[in-house]
Amino acid sequence: MMTNLFSTFDPSTNILNLSLNWMSTMIGLMMIPMLFWFTPSRMSMIWINIIITLHKEFKTLLGEFSHKGSTFMFISLFSFILFNNFMGLFPYIYTSSSHMSMTLSLALPLWLSFMMFGWINHTQHMLSHLVPQGTPPILMPFMVCIETISNIIRPGTLAVRLAANMIAGHLLLTLLGNTGPMMNSLMINLLIITQLLLLTLEFAVSIIQSYVFAILSTLYSSEVI
């Protein structure tokens, strides 16, 4: 039971001996550029407004000393994660953002680049972050250890948060769906309503988790400037 349940999140599953699980991750890269060749529609105008709103918010978080164009990196990150989260809501499509190899490969390079940039160019500023303002002298060694550990686990928390939230909803939908054949007609109707409500919740979680990942990455980068 558990092997079959978790096999939906196993990247080694295949169709006709062809491993097509990660294909959904690359579909967006092929489809999104086509939007630039179409006449502006309502959907494209809505997406442009979303991008403008995100640009203003990321620019506010980064502050006045941010580098030009840095917000577009986080907007692209948000768009990429959002697309992959949505793709996982379709039946028989592998949710790549629910796997640690995907989320950690996004979080770890970002965190490493921020840390390297900060320690090379703003060493004194990075050292000052290890001791919060107003800390008593006797607690300073402990605060340095705590702040160092909290900095090191940041990419792990980013990756685990996204993967765990995407897996949890999909597992719940799968568990409830497997109970369908054993129910009568009344319970099946209730199950369908529950599944639709959970699917709506997963739709919201897909947006929220991609937004949280991008916002936290922006906040981490703003600390090294």
Rank of each mutant, 00 (worst) to 15 (best):
T174Y: 06
S221W: 15
M126I: 13
V160E: 04
M100Q: 02
F203L: 13
N178P: 02
A159Q: 04
I146R: 03
N178S: 11
L112V: 14
L219S: 14
P11L: 15
S96A: 12
W119F: 12
P33W: 15
S150A: 12
I188P: 01
L61R: 10
F86L: 14
P109H: 15
I93F: 02
Q209H: 06
L199T: 05
M115R: 12
L198H: 04
I152Y: 04
M143Y: 05
T148Y: 11
W119L: 15
L186T: 13
T123S: 06
A164Y: 04
H125P: 01
H170K: 14
L61G: 00
E57Y: 14
E202A: 10
S185E: 15
D10K: 03
M183H: 07
I149Y: 14
F114N: 08
L190M: 10
L176E: 03
H55K: 08
F213G: 00
I51L: 11
L216Q: 08
S96E: 02
I208M: 13
L108P: 01
A168G: 02
N178Q: 07
S44N: 12
G156P: 04
I138K: 06
K56G: 08
I167K: 09
F38L: 12
I207Q: 00
D10P: 07
I15M: 11
M116H: 14
N14S: 15
E147W: 12
S222A: 09
R154E: 11
E57R: 06
F114M: 14
P109Q: 15
T218A: 09
W111M: 06
